[in-house]
Simulated scan of single mutants.
Amino acid sequence: MNMEVAAMGNDLADAITVEVPANSQEISVQQLEESKIEGIPVLKNWKPAPVFSALGALCWLFVWRFLALLCIFASSLALGSDDRSYMLGLVAALVFQVAIVAVYALLFYPSYYKEKPPLKSSRAISFLNYLLGGVVFGWCWNSNLKRSHLIERPEKGVSHIVMVVLQVIVLVFYLAMYVPYLVDASMPEANLASDYDEVESYSIKGASPSMSQSDEGDRLVDTAAGVSFVVPKGWHGADLMKERHFIRWKAYPNDNATAGITYGASLAEEVDPDDLVAEDFEGIISEILEGCQDEAVERVNIGGTDYWMITGTGINVQEEFALPVSATFLMSFENGFGYSFQYLDYSQGQDASRYYSDFIEMVESVVYG
């Protein structure tokens, strides 16, 4: 019996034995590891491209600024050159930036660890990683690709997710800052009569200025302040912030040139124009424009009315991008009111004499009383 059992065991062993061909090779653990990137072309063929990485980082410094300027320009064309269109352009640029970076980080970067990526060139990928991920995340993404190539195992990491989360946080922060301002700026401005108790005592109690037709053109009439003037042709009025106390009207050129005009008025019953001297007006522009070193005050006569002219150049600290600005203020005092006509030029050396001439012609048309 024992011999039969042994014979049966030998037969069973022969039945399950698989012969290995003589020319076969033994598969090692290392070869199994290598097979993990065998079908992934980006990782398999990755080659560092420091020149293209540096070029991407350099472009990163300028591309988003150019996008912001482009959005601001487009917003100005659609809505006019005012603070609201400026802020709207910035918000639009930030939304576009977050969307572009998110698409790249969540779709393109992970595809480099797959068999059929949309890009396979190490140079193109290195450039885009730094262009869209910046110096920090661009370095992380390139390092992950290089490491995956060296250890022959995909090491994608989570930096692409972290990048998107940070971008969204920044977007939410800026939206929380700018959207309330945009909503408030887009609201129709209420008459000063209804807001009089909420503003300072020097404000003028009465309706906002209105427009009337005349032989000279459109004339702005401010009945409450007792003054009127002809609005320059080729300029359009802009909305005012509800909180303003002094400014009664402002306008910008229709061709979106970097210039602006404002008119303001306030009660000045205790001011005797004959007692005023140049020193009383010194520092007005220096307080508004940072770095103003050329402020000057002089007495001029325009359209038969004496004005104090204050001029100066400096940086408008209220602007997101600190831009040089040239300012001219003309101030007069009539019938218990103080009036100010202001011209601001952001042209930075460009020929803007035509817009300044429009401003002077407007002041020449002023009628008091």
Rank of each mutant, 00 (worst) to 15 (best):
N2D: 13
M8A: 13
N10W: 10
D11I: 08
L12Q: 04
A13W: 07
A13F: 09
V18P: 00
E19F: 12
A22R: 08
Q31D: 12
S35Q: 10
S35P: 00
S35E: 13
G39C: 05
L43K: 01
P48A: 04
A54S: 13
L55W: 07
G56I: 05
C59H: 02
W60G: 03
L61W: 13
V63T: 07
F66A: 15
L70W: 07
I72Y: 01
A74F: 12
L77H: 07
A78Q: 09
A78I: 01
G80Y: 02
S81K: 10
M87S: 05
M87D: 03
V91E: 01
A93S: 12
V95Q: 01
F96Q: 01
A99S: 11
A102L: 10
L106S: 06
F108N: 04
Y109M: 01
S111R: 03
E115V: 11
E115L: 09
K116D: 14
S122A: 12
R123D: 03
I125T: 11
I125G: 04
Y130A: 11
V135R: 03
N142M: 02
S143I: 03
L145I: 15
K146S: 14
H149F: 07
I151V: 14
I151A: 11
E152T: 11
G157I: 10
M163A: 10
V164Q: 01
V165N: 02
M177F: 08
P180W: 00
P180C: 00
Y181R: 13
N191Y: 06
N191Q: 13
S194R: 08
D195N: 14
D195G: 11
D197Y: 14
E198G: 04
E200M: 09
S201C: 03
Y202D: 06
Y202N: 06
S203C: 15
S214W: 05
R219C: 06
V221N: 12
G226K: 08
G226L: 05
G226F: 06
V227E: 03
F229H: 02
G234V: 08
W235C: 09
A238N: 06
D239N: 06
L240Y: 09
M241D: 03
M241N: 09
H245T: 11
F246S: 08
R248K: 13
A251I: 00
P253S: 05
P253K: 03
P253D: 02
A259S: 08
A259R: 03
D272M: 10
D272E: 09
D275S: 14
G283Y: 05
I288W: 10
L289R: 05
C292H: 02
Q293E: 15
D294H: 12
D294Y: 07
E295A: 10
V297S: 05
N301D: 15
Y307F: 14
Y307M: 03
W308N: 04
M309N: 11
I310D: 02
T311G: 03
G312E: 05
T313L: 00
G314A: 07
P324R: 06
P324A: 06
F329L: 14
F329I: 09
M331S: 11
F333D: 08
F333H: 12
N335P: 08
G338A: 13
Y339N: 07
Q342S: 06
L344W: 15
D345Y: 06
Q348N: 11
Q348F: 06
A352S: 14
A352E: 14
S357R: 08
S357T: 15
F359K: 04
I360Q: 09
E361Q: 15
V363G: 02
Y368M: 10
Y368N: 02
